[in-house]
């Protein structure tokens, strides 16, 4: 996945070409695009519309309907905070508060260094570990404010060290 997209339309065209019927497979197609760019850049949406003959209005309608699709570039680390029932009962909102506090940005936003973005999501399905959050596919369970801070700061530290080398 590229973090800063260099729009190369041949990649977009190749993805469109994977589908026999791009209109019917629109959701899978957009998922592939997002896998490539990390989000759905506007220029790419225009290109899909032109190449596949799908009205831009419909593309944007679908992109804004499903919570998975992002129209802005996310951070390198995507923090998903579970808002499921079990997490709620076990004080999940404090995890969200702690993430917001540690990152210093609101839900749906990306930190200035481009490292982190965070959002609240419906159940991650790990209810027995509640409250939980997921960072780039890895689940962190039985959290409290302190643990959240530690997990995020550890990642941040590792990134800074990597950048320093």
């Amino acid at each position: 996945m590229k973090i800063k997209p260099q729009i190369d339309f041949s990649v977009v065209d190749e993805i469109i070409g994977r589908y026999e019927n791009p209109s019917e497979s629109l959701i899978s197609l957009l998922q592939d695009i997002q896998e490539e760019y990390g989000y759905l850049p506007t220029d790419v949406m225009v290109r899909i519309s032109e190449q596949a003959g799908i009205p831009l209005s419909r593309l944007m309608g679908v992109a804004t309907f499903y919570s998975q699709f992002k129209l802005n570039a996310p951070g390198k680390y995507k923090v998903l905070v579970c808002m499921g029932t079990a997490c709620h009962v076990n004080n999940g909102e404090r995890v969200a508060d702690a993430v917001a506090k540690t990152l210093g940005v609101k839900e749906g936003e990306t930190t200035a260094d481009g490292l982190f973005s965070w959002e609240e999501v419906a159940c991650l399905g790990c209810c027995s570990l509640s409250p939980v959050m997921m960072i780039n596919g890895q689940v962190y369970g039985k959290l409290d404010g302190k643990k959240v801070e530690q997990v995020i700061n550890d990642i941040r530290k590792a990134e800074l060290e990597r950048a320093g080398q």
């Binding site: 629109l26 309907f65 998975q68």
Partner: peptide, 24 residues
């Protein structure tokens, strides 16, 4: 087919709309 995060798609007719590439 992977869903894209919409609870309403658990409803049959919404799921079908989603399978067809539309808003669910």
């Amino acid at each position: 087919m992977k869903g894209a995060g919409a609870f309403v798609c658990g409803e049959e007719t919404a799921l079908l709309a989603s399978l067809g590439g539309d808003r669910g």
